[in-house]
Structure formats: C-alpha cells, structure tokens
Amino acid sequence: MRFSLYIGTNKYALSTEDDILKLSPVNFECQHKILIGNKDILRCTQIAYKKIFDKSIDKYNKNNPKKEIKSYYVKINESLKQSLATGILIKINEKNYKNLAEEKIIQLFLNQLKVINRLLKNFYIVSAILYFEKSLTLRIIGIPYVKDNSNELAVRISKSSCFTREKAEELRLKLQIQANKDFLKFFINKTKNILPDKKKIDIRQLGLFENYRENRI
C-alpha cells in the first residue's frame, strides 16, 4: 500500500467556481461513492458559506453600513488573492484493491475524514467523493476559516491559519497511520505493512506553505 496526500495551495487552490466545478463527479469517468455532500458540489459550497459566515456578515454589515458585504461568497469568488475553498487529495495505491471488500474500503476513507475533522477544527468539509480509479482517490473540498472577535469580521476565510506547515505535517502523519491501521485491520492478509516514519514525510505541495500570506478584510 502506498499513501499520498496533496493539499491545494497557491496555484493548486480552488480559487474560483470554475476550479471547483472541475472536481464535479461528472468529469471523472470511473465509479465513485459520495461520502459527504452530493454531486452538486458548487451548490454545497454556497450553502456552506451561508452556514459558516452569515451571522458574522450580518454583524459586520450592521456596524459598517457604508461597506456592506452583500454576499461573502461572491466577494471571495471575485477576489484575486483568496480562494473559495481548499482541496485535499488522498490517494492509496494498492494494485489489488478491486479484490477487497468495497464496504471496508469506504470505511477506511470515512476514518480518514474523521482524522481531518479531529485535527482541522476550522476546516468545514463541503464535499468528499471516493473515486475507484487506478488508485483509490478521495477528493475533498473544504472551507478553511478562522474565528477572531478582535477583527471586524469575526469569522472569515483563512487558509494560512488552518494549514500551517506544522499542521500539514501532523495531518499527513496521522492520516497515514490511520490508513495503515485500517488496512491491517480490514485486509491483513492482502496488504503490506507500512511503518510511518516522520523523517520521510513527503507532501508534494508542502513547500508552498513557506512565506505564504493572504489578504484579510
């Protein structure tokens, strides 16, 4: 079993609606299973924005009538320096996975989502879809945010506060440990054991976190 994690930052970010739509399940010609959300991932994103930010936006507008934000979703979508959402890609390459029980494969990836929810408290998962490609691929769309009562906008988009380099390293390590644990539990006679080594952690876009800055309202 080979485990890979990709976190969308900078040029890999989901900056606009078009970027999000590229991840629609209709664009992938393979079997898939929706674990969170539904096939209309753009609508799911819009609903999530209202759930996360509406109270904060209402309060901001009352205190700043001359700078009213009619739609935070539209504001971020039109921004050139902030992204609508962040993508996480988890790949597990096991060449004989088609011989494994599908319900156990699904449970393995549900456990990956539990790890993400546990570690990234301010990352709202909008969509998570498992694709049965050459490798097992989980495509996640989420909204990173920060709560800061000292700011005029008490809840706002913030990728930098959610995905620090240290947090990304911790996430990758714990996701791999969980995946390895579940493979041993579910398919012990059909997979090879992997011993995670923190010194060998390799996140493809990890270097993009260096010197990362974002504009704030």
Score class of each variant (00 low, 15 high):
residue 84 L to N: 07
residue 84 L to W: 06
residue 75 K to Y: 10
residue 120 L to I: 03
residue 105 I to S: 02
residue 85 A to C: 13
residue 67 K to Q: 12
residue 85 A to E: 05
residue 124 Y to E: 12
residue 65 P to Y: 07
residue 65 P to E: 06
residue 66 K to P: 00
residue 93 N to W: 10
residue 63 N to R: 12
residue 121 K to H: 05
residue 78 E to V: 00
residue 103 E to C: 05
residue 82 Q to N: 15
residue 66 K to W: 03
residue 130 L to Y: 10
residue 123 F to L: 10
residue 75 K to R: 13
residue 113 L to M: 14
residue 142 G to E: 01
residue 130 L to Q: 11
residue 141 I to R: 10
residue 65 P to N: 11
residue 121 K to W: 01
residue 134 K to Q: 14
residue 129 I to K: 03
residue 79 S to P: 04
residue 105 I to D: 01
residue 83 S to T: 07
residue 71 S to T: 06
residue 132 F to D: 06
residue 61 N to I: 02
residue 103 E to Y: 10
residue 83 S to P: 10
residue 68 E to T: 13
residue 116 I to T: 04
residue 130 L to F: 07
residue 128 A to R: 11
residue 92 I to N: 14
residue 101 A to H: 14
residue 111 N to C: 12
residue 110 L to F: 06
residue 69 I to S: 07
residue 133 E to D: 15
residue 136 L to N: 07
residue 111 N to Q: 14
residue 59 K to I: 13
residue 123 F to G: 02
residue 141 I to S: 13
residue 91 K to N: 14
residue 62 K to H: 11
residue 87 G to N: 00
residue 135 S to A: 14
residue 144 P to G: 02
residue 132 F to H: 10
residue 134 K to F: 13
residue 84 L to A: 05
residue 91 K to D: 13
residue 94 E to Y: 10
residue 79 S to R: 05
residue 58 D to G: 05
residue 71 S to G: 09
residue 86 T to A: 08
residue 92 I to S: 08
residue 110 L to P: 00
residue 122 N to A: 04
residue 139 R to W: 04
residue 69 I to V: 12
residue 73 Y to A: 01
residue 95 K to P: 15
residue 76 I to P: 01
residue 91 K to P: 05
